[in-house]
Nucleic acid binder design. Structure first.
Length: 719
DNA sequence: GTGGTGTAG
DNA sequence: GGTTCTACACCAC
């Protein structure tokens, strides 16, 4: 048996069924490991002492979790073939072991070890090829989606790590039980530091640790995966602390241990954000440890890196990280690559390009979005200076080819091979010898589109959207340009993104209120006319939304009893709340608990729906500032709202309000559904794609809040 | 938008 | 000499 699972049995992870948030936390702990009772300490004085000369910062009130799956690729392979659990297993890509299970690690195999070395150390090592990432990618997104069932603020970091901001969940819990008479941290506390009852941050982190345990338990029961978690007040600390105890354990770092955690890092390279290059540059300044960097004069650091980067680095060394957890959404690019010893003929390049495009087109078709750009990257080996260099060339994909890509099949392959080879010739002079060691093809600028062109949502808006000159869409291959398609319409996905960006902006200006349900809850039954199998696959809060949106369901809460509402509205929200729609006002509910018998607590945004847009909302979409959605919609077509989409067809992304959706014209509903279906199974929150490109300051303000308000109609308004 | 670079797992 | 296969951010242009 894999050691991951053996350790799992020892851990104090609460199962899905045995956390009762209405009782004190110690009742939920079954194993003593890592459970620290309250002791009275002076947190402030200890903090000052621990941090030494480091400038004191007000401790962040955020609660951030970091999840890191144990030897992810190996776990996936062991799930696919359980016999591998007892064997030393290595995942091989070319001549490298990219990861291995813990049985192999006990034999001395490590990550990124050469296969030859690994075989020497562990002759019985079983190797599985991990060059095809399909399965890992699929499971990876399932993990992220599972996490998104708890909080919308989930940020992916590679295939096997996720950040999660659970601040709102923690606050909901503390509103429910403001002063737990007893509380503990689930799992380890970094440095074995004691909890302080008087320190609010301790209390928040303790609650966060129970959420982390809950999520890890769900990962195990639902996906069969184990992993570590870190609990801290920011992403940097959460990530650094999560690996303190491996595998399959979790650690919480309290603010007073920040300096210790940072200084315990084995070199600056261990600090996230300090890569190989930066570490080299720091080394030239004589800085090799975190402590070196902490003590180095900021002005001198600024001379090497510039003021902004110097501040950033200095903050990192102190464990300060204000970056928000930014929901990742679907990938912004899809790429496929292969490395090799040597490719030096055009025929070989052509074969490799065809091979890469074949798999990439398949992925692109499954993704459903249409790529607007193709990029070819090569790694060239220069014999003269014995150095590898990466180069790339990219160009737009003509619309007719793009449409072929999403329509499936391999029709697009030939013209794309043609384009790719043109890009290749931009970099490589075929009259001279060349030596390539890598080829990468990347589709980017991905645009979701309606199921068909004529019925696309762009139908509503085409006459009013700004026209794009045909020559802006020229490709490097003039003969493949599709001039018959004028790309002037507002694409459906852009509409959705625009709406969601506007939602995010609106939400960022709102103070959430919290509703806590204290009693046990049964899983909602599907509303009349809804396919139970489809209904059961929906996230619980969407199930509730669907239930509550049907006329037969009039209960204000899932249970209809034991509901305690906490209205924490700010003035702006109070003002908005007076504008609420009298009959449809609701609180969007997000639950931590999954089992039917468990108690629930919900995080919602009372007052966020059916309100009149504020003046600030009028600037909602930087991409389409000239015209509102309503103007476009009304100007083109307002189909009757009586023929609605049957509920059984309504599979909404988690950030779409079913009630609002139901109020849209049927045609618009179908368009949106078509868009969302095309984006499955990677159903994330496209909102952030736009936000992430903004300056960090804006990003923080627009993404820090929970994207749970989904009133589409309010964004259909005049300019 | 393009191309190079750096960072991450 | 770096090592694989992605994916993303940032910056100069």
């Amino acid at each position: 048996m894999d050691i991951c699972y053996e350790r799992d049995a020892e851990m104090s992870v609460d199962s899905d069924d045995d956390i009762d948030w209405t009782r004190n936390f110690s009742d939920n702990v079954r194993v003593q490991e890592g459970i620290h009772p309250i002791t009275a300490t002076s947190s402030l004085s200890k903090c000052r002492k621990t941090l030494g000369t480091a400038p004191m910062k007000a401790p962040s009130q955020r609660v951030i979790l970091h999840f890191d799956l144990d030897c992810f690729y190996a776990q996936v392979e062991m799930i696919r073939n359980p016999e591998l659990r007892n064997m030393p297993l290595g995942i091989q890509q070319k001549n490298i072991i990219v990861t291995c299970n813990y049985v192999a690690r006990e034999c001395g195999v490590t990550k990124l070890m050469f296969v030859t070395t690994a075989k020497e150390r562990c002759p019985q090592l079983v190797l599985v090829s991990g060059e095809d990432l399909t399965h890992y990618r699929e499971i990876s997104y399932k993990v992220t989606e599972l996490l998104e069932g708890y909080s919308p603020l989930v940020e992916r970091l590679g295939f096997d790590e996720n950040f999660m901001d659970v601040t709102d969940m923690v606050e909901a819990k503390l509103r429910q039980e403001p002063v737990p008479y007893d509380f503990t941290v689930n799992g380890h506390i970094y440095n074995q530091q004691s909890l302080d009852t008087r320190a609010e941050t301790h209390m928040r982190l303790a609650v966060g640790s129970h959420i982390a345990a809950k999520v890890r338990a769900a990962l195990h029961t639902k996906l069969g995966l184990t992993g570590c978690a870190g609990v801290a007040t920011n992403k940097l600390l959460a990530k650094l602390v999560s690996g303190t105890f491996k595998p399959n354990q979790q650690t919480t770092v309290l603010p007073e241990s920040t300096a210790d955690l940072m200084r315990s890092q084995d070199g600056l390279r261990k600090v996230p954000g300090v890569g190989h290059r930066t570490a080299q540059r720091l080394q030239t300044l004589g800085l090799s440890s975190v402590r070196d960097l902490q003590c180095f004069p900021l002005t001198q650091l600024g001379k090497e890196f510039g003021v902004s980067a110097a501040h950033h680095l200095h903050n990192l060394s102190l464990g300060i990280d204000d970056t928000p957890v930014t929901p990742t959404g679907p990938p912004q690019s899809l790429s496929d690559e292969d490395s090799f010893k040597k490719i030096s003929t055009e025929t070989e390049v052509l074969e490799k390009v065809e091979e890469l495009l074949t798999s990439l087109l398949d992925r692109m078709h499954k993704d459903g979005r249409q790529p607007g750009t193709i990029r070819l990257t090569i790694r060239r080996f220069s014999a003269t200076n014995k150095w590898y260099s990466r180069e790339s060339r990219q160009c737009p994909i003509p619309s007719n080819i793009g449409k072929k890509i999403i329509s499936g099949g391999q029709d697009a392959k030939a013209p794309l091979v043609n384009i790719t080879m043109k890009l290749f010739h931009k970099m490589i002079d075929r009259t001279k010898p060349f030596h390539l060691t890598l080829i990468n093809i990347c589709f980017s600028n991905l645009q979701a589109r309606g199921a068909d062109g004529k019925g696309s949502i762009s139908f509503f808006f085409a006459p009013r959207s700004p026209r794009k000159p045909a020559d802006q869409e020229k490709s490097c291959l003039e003969d493949t340009i599709d001039t018959s398609f004028s790309d002037t319409s507002l694409r459906g996905a852009e509409l959705v993104r625009g709406i969601e960006a506007a939602m995010a902006k609106d939400k960022s200006q709102r103070v959430p209120s919290v509703t806590c349900t204290l009693g046990p809850e049964s899983p909602p039954s599907p509303p009349p006319g809804v396919d139970p199998s489809v209904f059961q696959q929906l996230p619980r809060y969407i199930q509730r939304e669907l239930k509550s949106s049907t006329p037969s369901s009039s209960s204000p809460s899932p249970t209809g009893k034991n509901v305690h509402s906490f209205t924490a509205l700010g003035q702006a929200d109070q003002a908005r709340s007076s504008l609420k729609h009298p009959t449809t006002e609701k609180t969007l509910e997000c639950t931590l608990e999954d089992p039917p018998t468990a108690p629930h607590w919900y995080i919602g945004q009372s007052g966020s729906r059916h309100t009149q847009p504020s003046s600030a909302d009028d600037e909602w979409d930087p991409c389409y500032p000239h015209c509102s959605f309503q103007e476009r919609a009304e100007g083109k077509n307002h189909t009757d709202s009586t023929s609605q989409i049957p509920p059984s067809e309504s599979v909404f992304p988690p950030n779409i309000d079913p009630i609002v959706f139901s109020e849209l014209p049927a045609k618009l509903q179908r368009e949106l559904l078509s868009e969302w279906r095309q984006q499955k199974p990677v159903s994330k929150i496209p909102t952030t794609k736009m936000l992430r490109r903004r300056p960090a300051k804006e990003t923080k303000s627009t993404t820090a809040k929970s994207p749970q308000s989904n009133n589409l109609l309010k964004y259909f308004k005049p300019c």
